[in-house]
Every structure is written in C-alpha cells, then in structure tokens.
C-alpha cells in the first residue's frame, strides 16, 4: 500500500506536484498516468524519499520510506533516468546493491537469470542497449524480492521486443499478487497491464479508480442509435435530458440517457430503431479527454481566449 497525503513539491514559483492525495491499492497493478511533465517522476522520487516534499507526506506500508532499514526487501524501484555507473559490470552493480541490504550473492545470480542477463553479467553496463539497461534496472528492483514495486516509465524508448518483455513481466508481477505502481504517458500500454488507474495532470489528481470506472466516467462513453426517423427521436431524447451529437452517417451519439430508457422512449413513440448499442470509450479516448480538459484549465485566464490549437498543447511541459 502506497499513500500520499497532500503531497506537494514546489521548485521556486513552479508547482510540480500540487496537494496530491492518492492511494495505490495492494496486490494489483496501478497505472500512474499523465502527460510528460505532469509530476509522475517527482511524485515517485518523493515516495522514495529521494526528493523532499515541500509539504505533505508519502508512506509505504504505513511507514515513511526513510524509516525502512533495508528497503529493498519491501520496495523495489526503477527510476526513469538510468541509475547505473557505466563502468561497472551488471553483476558488480547488483552486488553492491545486494550487499547494502544484506541480500545474498546467490540472489544476484537469480535476478540476472530472471531478466535474461546471465550471459552478459560481466560486461560493462555502459555498453548495454536501452533494453538491456532496463532489464538490469528491473533486476535491481527485484533483488530483495519486494512485495511493492515502483516503476517509472519502464517501456519508454524500448524497441518492440523490449516492450513485449516488460509487459509480460508486469503481468507476471500482477499474477503473483504484488503491488505495482507503474507510470506511463501511454494509455494504450496501461490498457494492457493495469487494473487500477491514477491520472494526474499539472501535479494534480484528475481521476482515480478501476480501469472500467475511468472509462465509464468518460464522456466519450455513449450510446449509438440509428433510426430512419432520426430527427424526431433526437428531439424526443433532448426533451428527456440527453446530449446528442450527430454523425455524418445519421447515427446519433447519445449521452446522459440510459440505453434502456432510449429503447423504451423509441418503443413508446413507435420509432423504428436500426441500431442501439453502448459505446465504451477506449482508455486512450478517456485519457485524451482528461488531459485535454487539463490543457484548457491550464490556459492563462488573463491571456486572450484560447484557440483550439493552443488548448491541445497540454501546457504541462
């Protein structure tokens, strides 16, 4: 269980993380989402006590990170920037980490095997490809066989093979019942691996909940209705509080009125329906929507009214 309470980080005038209160549920994979610069990495560094919060607090399993004597047994972490001395071998890197937390040398060989780096264990880490470096980082995170893992953008910059490997690794962690907080700016990636989502933008919490909840609450979720008598149906639905957008192909996209209610209204008024189907938003759409709102929110109110092109910039960079 990872919890933050009113966690805030300021750099001068800039607020990187803004009173962020969130809790990462145990035993599942939680996707930590937000556009680049939203404050994901800063939040993770504060959870690990690498950066000091300006105010607020973060706790892992009910304790501050700094109060854990040998943290690698409880929390494994992979940070975005490489944290490996390039002149040291893969085994050398894992060995000093293991020694610092009284982890056996045998475990070093085990994690090298786990990530498939046994053959290059004696090679300098500086000569590793991005994918191999990421595997070494994951080996380091797994060294103490921790129940909780914090992974910052683990697939960033990886080739397809590396992405597939990280993805299957995340799934195996989930199946073992570990608590995983994995940050990403890629929604599609999270759709494949996460059970729970925490979405932040400009350092603030935008949404948290199960993947299904976040998708369902998105206004991109709607009911698609096709009818030869579209205009009459549209008027009827609008009168009953629906929000409707018209498609080019005469389909109605209906929000705010339940699908059974739409069917009932059509039957009561003898309107023929050709199609009546629920359209769940993709995670990608839900995310775009959330961060698009953020973009508008970010626009300086004193400046001239935002044009559509400026509001999609995200502003959080």
């Amino acid at each position: 269980m990872i919890e933050t309470t009113e966690l805030t980080k300021r750099y001068g005038d800039k607020v990187a993380v803004d009173h962020l209160t969130m809790s990462v549920p145990s035993g599942q994979v939680t996707g930590f989402l937000g556009p680049n610069g939203a404050g994901k990495s800063t939040t993770m560094r504060m959870i690990l006590d690498l950066d000091a919060p300006s105010s607020g607090s973060a706790k892992v399993n009910g304790r501050r990170y700094r109060d854990i004597r040998f943290p690698l047994h409880e929390v494994g972490s992979l940070l975005e920037a490489k944290s490996i001395h390039p002149a040291r071998s893969a085994r050398g890197h894992l060995q000093w980490l293991a020694d610092s937390n009284r982890i056996s040398r045998k475990r070093v060989d085990e994690v090298l095997e786990l990530v498939g780096l046994s053959a290059v264990a004696k090679k300098r880490a500086g000569g590793f490809s991005l994918g191999m470096g990421q595997r070494l980082g994951i080996a380091a995170a797994m060294l103490g066989d921790p129940q909780t893992l914090l992974l910052d953008e683990p697939v960033n910059g990886l080739d397809p093979e590396g992405i597939v490997w990280v993805r299957s690794f995340l799934r195996s962690l989930a199946s073992e019942g570990r608590t995983v907080l994995v940050s990403s700016h890629l929604m599609s990636e999270m759709a494949l691996t996460a059970d729970y989502l925490i979405v932040i933008g400009a350092g603030r919490l935008i949404s948290q909940g199960s993947v299904n909840d976040v998708v369902a609450n998105s206004s991109s979720s709607h009911v698609l209705v096709r009818s030869p008598d579209g205009t009459r149906l549209a008027n009827l639905l609008t009168a009953n509080g629906a929000e409707i957008t018209n498609d080019v192909d005469n389909a109605l996209r209906v929000r705010k009125v339940d699908i059974t209610r739409i069917g009932q209204l059509a039957a009561d008024n003898a309107i023929v329906l050709h199609e009546l189907s629920p359209q769940a938003a993709s995670l990608e759409q839900a995310f775009m929507e959330l961060t698009h709102d953020l973009g508008e929110y970010q626009t300086d109110p004193i400046a001239s009214p935002p044009s559509p092109s400026t509001s999609t910039d995200g502003g959080a960079n």
Binding site: L79, I84, L97, A140
Partner: peptide, 11 residues
C-alpha cells in the same frame, strides 16, 4: 544518477 539507486537502497 547512481546516487538515486544508492539512496533508494539506503535512505
């Protein structure tokens, strides 16, 4: 950046 690995292992 190894300092982050160091301090994450020993706060």
């Amino acid at each position: 950046g190894q300092i982050r690995a160091t301090f994450a292992a020993t706060p």
